[in-house]
Design a protein around this nucleic acid. Structure first.
Lengths: 148, 148
DNA sequence: CAATCTATGTCAGAATCCTGACATGAGTCA
DNA sequence: TGACTCATGTCAGGATTCTGACATAGATTG
């Protein structure tokens, strides 16, 4: 039964539970975003632009955990829909800073309300101390993984 | 600055950090599994079969967080490679119980060692109490999300 | 100053995964 | 018993995402 002789016990593995929780969260988000005609990456992109206006395609990709190629096709679609605007040419280097249009802002507001509901449900049975602990532990794990 | 007026603050959002941690973990796992010619889902499938021999394709899919269609093409490939065996026809219903072959078992052992190293690094800076708290909090979040 | 390195945006192709659908077998219930 | 529901394995098609590659611009380094 020990983890040393046998494989990794999935029921007590932080890694497996991390994947499970992340998967459940993504599913719940897709569920509430679908009626709004939005995907999770789509929402993430708008939310990122709301908090850091002028983020580049590559930066958005990194923070949304997709490749810049994927983010670029999304940005092109969002530009076509008038939710995001980018200058025709770069003022410095090759970076094209993206910004939310008023239309994109309205889309985001609807999505944020929906997503906030999901996050609230996810945290409903946790105390404030639990949530703080979760933040600290998750940040520690990310840092440890990255310095590999 | 409040979460009520503005959007969701990504830096203090448990949901965003969950995705970030999960993404970092997946990246690290891909990194160590690639030299072994294995994907994360591939590894997950073998690990699941080691712990619950006889799991069906659909069950494996659920526990590996992919669709049964995706798991099925993986299982077919693993059968071709001689890592997994399934009976030609079902003895009851349509369920085809899958099992690890000795060859699959050896592949899994190599992968488990690699993955255990990743998980160990991820948890290196956490106390036992932290890890217990993480397990409890993650389980609570999963349960809350599922009863939506 | 020149060479190298790094990072960006973008294009094309391939791989992956999912959505939709079908037939089959088991359980449920009137 | 018969109708209904549910779950399984599987096939085909499409959508999404990634891998690889290229030219370009800034930073770094000798």
């Amino acid at each position: 039964m020990s983890q040393d002789a046998d494989g990794i016990d999935l029921d007590t593995s932080v890694g497996y539970l991390l994947k499970e929780a992340s998967s459940a969260l993504r599913l719940s988000m897709e569920e509430v975003l679908k009626p709004l005609g939005m995907t999770v990456t789509h929402y993430a992109c708008l939310e990122l632009l709301a908090q850091r206006p002028g983020l580049s395609n590559s930066e958005l990709a990194r923070r949304a955990f997709v490749t810049r190629q994927s983010m670029n096709v999304l940005l092109q679609a969002l530009e076509r829909q008038g939710q995001v605007s980018r200058p025709a040419e770069a003022s410095v280097g090759r970076v094209l800073p993206a910004r939310l249009t008023p239309h994109g802002r309205r889309s985001l507001d609807r999505a944020t309300a929906a997503v906030r509901g999901v996050e609230r449900r996810m945290l409903a049975d946790l105390t404030d101390a639990d949530q703080s602990a979760a933040l600290r532990v998750l940040r520690t794990m990310v840092a440890s993984l990255r310095q590999g």
